[in-house]
Write a protein that binds this DNA or RNA. Structure first.
Lengths: 114, 114
DNA sequence: ATAATTACTTTATCAGATGAAGTACGACAG
DNA sequence: CTGTCGTACTTCATCTGATAAAGTAATTAT
């Protein structure tokens, strides 16, 4: 399981990705992240819902209430144009980030460094 | 230039990498990161020095004073065994992190999503 | 009834990044 | 011998985002 400090800065991106094709809501997004990553990353509830609030006030997503229920009423979120464009930026940034970090990573089988 | 929120969680790893083969000090590490990444990532002074403090108290590095100077006396840091082992863990973790994040990244040329 | 599941909220706390500002030392130009 | 530049580090205050703890609200299953 990955520490979220590492993912931090990409939590929003992950959520936006799952909203690209259709609106969704907290509980579902949470489940989809768990599934997509084979439980390697589980976004905490509070992280998720505070990301919603943040992105809503940033204008990246918009809330609306859904009608279907089986449990407490859901709040759905829809990605906005600003959200798509932010998502795109983050994807481009990712390439650079990855290259940067990998300059400092030694892959496999390094033993004798003394 | 990359936002440090993204790198967060790997700042310590980057510093440890630069200490693997020889002790070093703040100013030099800062410069080497700038150079190695072609200015794509510049670690802020305060980030760097607070990372030193943190890693020292975690037992990942040890401080000692250098003799050579051309300016204010330097504080050198040397990586410990615990530091090497933490570094190795982070390298292994990186592979997983990368895979996780990339499940949520769409590469290049995505236009029509509506 | 009540337990389980779904779904979300509130509050408080913490770690780590960062800006602003300052200190300390040596080298070197005028 | 004074001032500035570059090196090297420190202190302090603030902010963002993650997270733990706890609670609320609605529906379905037992």
């Amino acid at each position: 399981m990955i520490s979220s400090d590492v993912i931090r800065g990409y939590n929003d991106t992950m959520i936006l990705y799952l909203l690209l094709n259709e609106p969704s809501y907290g509980y579902e997004i949470s489940k989809r992240i768990r599934e997509l990553t084979d439980e390697k990353y589980i976004m905490k509830e509070t992280t998720l819902y505070s990301a919603f609030k943040r992105m809503e006030s940033n204008g990246f997503i918009e809330a609306f209430s859904g009608s279907e229920t089986n449990g407490k009423p859901r709040t759905y979120y829809k990605i906005t144009d600003a959200g798509r464009s932010y998502y795109k930026e983050k994807c481009e940034e990712w390439e650079i980030t990855r290259e940067v970090i990998e300059k400092f990573i030694v892959k496999e089988n390094f033993h004798e460094y003394n």
